[in-house]
Computed example of a mutant assay.
Amino acid sequence: MSALEAMVEERASILRFYSPYYGLRNLSDNKSPWQTLRAQLLNFGAEENEHCWYSDNGCYFLYTDLPWDSAFFGRPMARLRTVLFNSVGNLRTGCARFTEHLVTRGVQHCIADIPTEDIQVLQALGQIGWMLTETRLQYAHENLSHIPAERYNVRQALQSEQTVLGCIAAHNPNPYDRFHADPFFSFEEANAFLAEYAVAAVNGYCEEVLVPNQDKVSLDSFIAINYQQRDAISRTNNIGRIMLMAVGGQNRGWGRKLFAEALHRAHDRGEHTIFSTTQTTNRAIIHIKEQLGFRLVAVTHILSWSRS
């Protein structure tokens, strides 16, 4: 057994929480989330933009470059996947060396999405200056045959409406999402990112973008959905995800309607489960999800480091 494999096995009880599927109840194979994640960790570095960096004091840092984000924001950016270590006593020093490594590579910003259960990594990164920028709640709806029966008039957004949807996203941000809460980004940059995301969703990044289709209701909201994720677990278990939603003042009340209709359409397509992520501060969306039958399955914290 290699040193890396030994560390993965030693941390298995915590690393399991890094799988987005860990908290699901209705998987065809309950062992598959850990088996898939374990294989990914052991082979990390084989894919383009992946790095498995050793700190020389018993810590491995698995991280990826973010080429799309880097190009959009005009600064080299990365994402820390997880940390493997054989002694918690070495972790803080290892994290400090990792940030020095990022500086050496010219990286200016790095994020990490860490499950609450991995408290040792969260504390070590915090001690050396990584900043909490968002706490995320991962919800799942695993019983799409039992959703409110009422349907709503919606339609697929048109490509010709992409600019309008971009403006809706940019003008209705959550100030506590990881981009708006991170001082590395200006508020204008964060809004521009949301606008670009919405435009990409209409142009094929998401399988469907729904908007209101009701008389005397203006276009001031949308919801973007992917009914099939790219990985094998999602395809095998028919798992989709709500990717983005924005609701402006002229469409007040349409958040619940769009969510409900997205669930109906997912069920009509044969989906078994829908994921949706939000921030702990987004109480209105949390309330909608609870009304519609979503269940909280995971909590993670997004930390960021930036080069001053």
Results as ranks from 00 to 15, higher is better:
33 P>V: 12
1 M>C: 15
62 L>G: 04
114 I>N: 00
139 Y>S: 05
72 F>I: 10
56 D>T: 12
52 C>L: 09
147 I>F: 00
114 I>V: 04
146 H>T: 06
56 D>H: 12
76 P>T: 06
14 I>C: 10
105 R>V: 04
14 I>A: 11
113 D>W: 04
13 S>E: 15
22 Y>Q: 11
85 F>Q: 06
104 T>N: 07
41 L>T: 05
101 H>R: 07
22 Y>N: 11
80 L>P: 03
24 L>A: 03
59 C>N: 05
18 Y>M: 07
34 W>C: 14
12 A>V: 13
25 R>V: 00
52 C>T: 09
21 Y>C: 04
112 A>T: 01
114 I>D: 01
120 Q>D: 13
30 N>T: 15
50 E>H: 08
114 I>E: 00
71 A>M: 07
66 L>P: 04
4 L>I: 15
70 S>M: 06
69 D>F: 06
97 R>E: 06
7 M>T: 14
80 L>T: 02
57 N>G: 12
81 R>Q: 09
24 L>V: 03
94 G>D: 03
124 A>W: 02
43 N>G: 13
77 M>H: 01
25 R>M: 02
53 W>I: 03
48 E>H: 11
132 L>F: 04
139 Y>E: 03
73 F>V: 08
103 V>K: 10
85 F>H: 11
126 G>D: 02
7 M>R: 14
53 W>N: 02
45 G>K: 08
15 L>F: 11
32 S>V: 15
66 L>N: 04
109 H>A: 00
55 S>E: 00
48 E>Q: 12
26 N>M: 08
39 A>M: 14
19 S>V: 02
145 S>G: 11
14 I>S: 10
69 D>I: 06
117 E>M: 10
140 A>D: 00
140 A>Y: 00
52 C>G: 07
17 F>D: 08
48 E>V: 12
35 Q>R: 15
52 C>V: 09
57 N>R: 12
44 F>L: 05
28 S>L: 14
36 T>Y: 13
58 G>V: 11
74 G>L: 01
118 D>V: 09
129 G>S: 03
28 S>M: 14
74 G>Y: 02
49 N>T: 12
9 E>M: 15
139 Y>V: 05
18 Y>A: 06
73 F>K: 02
41 L>K: 04
110 C>W: 00
11 R>F: 13
73 F>M: 02
3 A>D: 14
3 A>L: 15
59 C>V: 08
78 A>I: 04
46 A>S: 13
135 T>R: 08
20 P>G: 10
125 L>F: 05
124 A>T: 08
51 H>V: 09
17 F>T: 10
54 Y>S: 05
18 Y>W: 09
46 A>D: 11
101 H>T: 04
33 P>G: 11
132 L>R: 05
139 Y>I: 06
70 S>V: 09
133 T>W: 00
20 P>F: 03
147 I>M: 01
5 E>R: 15
83 V>K: 03
102 L>W: 00
108 Q>I: 06
97 R>G: 07
